[in-house]
């Protein structure tokens, strides 16, 4: 899809996130909505080379959602990409569902690594990138981390290692929405300067508006064309709860699903009909 189509399609994805969270009656709205434009670009903007019928092929790209609590954003992309029946989205977080509260690689096709406890996804992605290099695979590994996640020390062990082993097949994407459960990142535990941190760890960096499809597509193109023995960090400035006015920039919606009334209101704003 091109920019205009991606923008239009993002409404469908946002709707599916909200509908599945509403059905689950629990889950993380804010971070799913802040990251969905990034995921939409990856999955439907032609960035990821993946085939739902053969997802573990050595030549295919990997995506690891290190901020696993944004699982609904990943699930809607996988569903619309054809990894599984879209009706499964209604089973999110329910007993027996492959759509666990946080992504489970054993239960759901298309989930490259189980994540949820913060920091581990990035380290696993580094391992995958090393493994793909060892196999001489042309595939890339994309890993989305949260800004709150950057408070975990493990993140820096992973960045150091990615740089040491010259993993230019690794693209770390930061969903920089500025909020975490207890409030503003800058109040809870400041992570700035972010760009300088990545650069100090030997990354090529690029900053982008994480809701601008032209910019996102261009950024991923830059990554693919930058094979300079350095891993790549894409710092995506985003808005928590993006697309639903009453959720935007509200840390209270970090771990809260929309109620029935909120869902109706949100869908009205998005201009879409209920249903997946």
């Amino acid at each position: 899809m091109k920019t205009k189509e991606l923008e239009e399609f993002s409404k469908t994805l946002r709707k599916a996130i909200l509908v599945s969270l509403n059905a689950a009656k629990s889950g993380h709205s804010g971070g799913s909505l802040s990251s969905i434009d990034i995921l939409n670009t990856l999955y439907f903007g032609g960035v990821l080379n993946i085939d739902p019928n053969n997802p573990r092929n050595d030549n295919q790209d990997r995506f690891v959602l290190s901020k696993g609590h944004a699982a609904p954003a990943l699930y809607v992309c996988l569903a619309y990409k054809g990894f599984f029946d879209k009706d499964l989205l209604y089973t999110l977080r329910k007993l027996g569902s492959p759509l666990q509260g946080h992504p489970d690689s054993k239960k759901l096709k298309g989930v490259c690594a189980s994540t949820g406890s913060l920091g581990h996804g990035l380290s696993q992605a580094v391992g995958m990138a090393l493994a793909l290099k060892l196999k001489n695979s042309p595939a890339n590994v994309y890993c989305l981390i949260g800004d709150g996640e950057m408070q975990e020390g493990l993140v820096y062990e992973a960045l150091m290692c990615a740089s040491h082993y010259k993993l230019d097949n690794l693209c770390v994407i930061l969903d920089f929405n500025g909020l975490q459960i207890d409030g503003a990142i800058s109040d809870v535990m400041n992570i700035s300067p972010v760009k300088e941190k990545f650069e100090a760890f030997g990354f090529s960096t690029y900053e982008v508006d994480g809701h601008n499809y032209d910019k996102l597509l261009d950024a991923f193109e830059r990554f693919k064309n930058t094979k300079n023995s350095k891993p790549f960090a894409l710092i995506a400035h985003t808005i928590k709860g993006k697309g639903v006015s009453f959720m935007e920039n509200k840390y209270e919606y970090h771990g809260k699903p929309p109620t029935d009334e909120e869902l109706d209101k949100a869908l009205l704003e998005l201009g879409v009909e209920n249903g997946i």
């Binding site: 493994a131 060892l134 062990e157």
Partner: peptide, 26 residues
């Protein structure tokens, strides 16, 4: 030597990297 990776003094990272390799079939 080509299949040995020193991860440095970062045991937690090593274990997750081990998981990454295993997910890729090693």
């Amino acid at each position: 030597p080509e299949r040995f990776f020193n991860i440095g003094i970062a045991e937690l990272n090593m274990v997750d990297i081990a998981a990454g390799f295993a997910l890729e079939g090693f």
